[in-house]
Amino acid sequence: MMKKLLPLLLCLLLLTGCAPKPESLDIFAMDTYMSLVAVGDEAFDALQKSANIVNSLEQAMSRTIDSSDVAQLNATGSAALRYDTAVLLEEAIALSEATLGSFDVTIAPLVALWNISGDNPRVPAQEEIDALLPLVGSEHIHLSDGSASLDEGCAIDLGGIAKGFASDRIAQLYHESDLSGGFVSLGGNVYVHGENTDGEKWNVAIQHPEVSGGYACMLSLTDAFVVTSGGYQRFFTAEDGTVYQHILDPATGAPAASDLLSVSIILPYDADKLHGAMADAYSTALYVMGEAAACDFWAGQQNFDMVLVTRDGRVLYTPNLIDHFTEVEDSGYDYQVLTA
């Protein structure tokens, strides 16, 4: 009789498999390391679809995949664009204009010249930079009805915005799926969705730019994009000992000499807007601008939130973030709320 009882009880234990557990997916794509988590009935499905989104965006926008729209455009000067590429390129031009050129996808020839994130970075001569600078500017891109062309010698690199765009697409997918929560972390581009596994808002830490493993501050957020740009992780040290970080200033064609260590842009999810791409572009642009110009830019627009870490040890954040913001005690920073 006990033999009958045991299987029965064991079957009951198996019933426990029905509740949602966090699913996670880690992939190397779009020149970065991506970490995705989803919780809910459709978590597994959502992650598979996310991977497909990332792959198809990479196929369309990678500079190194010959068949991509971007590679075609750069190689031949014109190309028919996939839907997503056309949408993003148009957005990139708009963001470039909004940031007065501090973010610019046509910086590609100079990125290639410095090659800071590549195998053989080098410090080019000023003449080399000057020769390429006229090629920078979104006026060199001509969009028309699903195709694009570039002026002679120009090239584009969507690397500074494609990850943000991918987070937009995945955020949209998360919203259409039956999920209680999740997040997407695509190399400095984070989107947090719904609740964390404790049923609360997500705790997003902004990395300390100077103390490895430390945090500059914590944000508690839901359905929001957080994108951080900084020069502290990707850089190279030249033979004379000068450190060159990887974000180039489109105005000078050289690594931005910013008085900021990192810029984080926070935007809420909006189904009708590409807030992930916008946060991605803004974080780069404001880093290039530096503290004063970045603060002026925010005061003039006030349609986004940000956290700036300055080189002289201050953390500045926008007043909307006060309720979501937690200081980190041992960070060594002074915390200040910006006023418009």
Binding site: S185, V190, V192, Q207, P209, V227, T228
Partner: peptide, 9 residues
């Protein structure tokens, strides 16, 4: 206690 869910940067 107070560990973040995600680190961005």
């Amino acid at each position: 206690e107070g560990a973040p869910d995600i680190v961005v940067g």
